[in-house]
């Protein structure tokens, strides 16, 4: 079965890069332009994994995770935080919000795909 990934990022460039990388790896990708759009899409699509940026207009990435974890539908979906920040503070916040993992921008294609495979069990 194809693994479906929802990528939420307000940067068009990052969205395109993610789409390209993930599609090349054989995943099915849909994108959302901010947190509100992301949650809307999440509720109507059955994502196997969500990738979200942190700093976004309307609703940030941590709020997105809180919404996902606080809802009923697909609430235990793996969520990867994609961010330029790194370090303990970020990890702490991501952990608190309920993120499954984090990837630091700029991301390495292979590492990202490997992490997704690991978190979703995709072949």
């Amino acid at each position: 079965m194809v693994t479906r990934i929802l990528a939420i990022d307000d940067s068009r460039t990052i969205r395109s890069l993610l789409t390209q990388t993930l599609q090349n790896a054989g995943f099915e990708v849909s994108t959302a332009v901010d947190g509100v759009d992301g949650i809307e899409k999440f509720r109507h699509e059955d994502a196997d994994l969500v990738i979200t940026d942190v700093n976004m207009p309307n609703k940030d990435g941590f709020e997105v995770i809180a919404d996902i974890r606080g809802g009923t539908r697909n609430r235990t979906v793996p969520v990867l935080v994609l961010t330029t920040e790194s370090g303990a503070a970020l990890k702490e916040r991501a952990r608190k919000a309920g993120a499954t993992g984090w990837i630091v921008k700029p991301f390495d294609d292979e590492a990202l795909v490997a992490v997704i495979r690991r978190l979703t069990g995709a072949a």
Binding site: T13, I14, L17, D53, M56, T84
Partner: peptide
């Protein structure tokens, strides 16, 4: 915030290149 985000997005995407 909007100004911050614009700079932040440039930084985030520029790292990819």
């Amino acid at each position: 915030n909007a100004v911050f985000r614009a700079v932040h997005s440039v930084k985030g995407a520029a790292g990819a290149f």
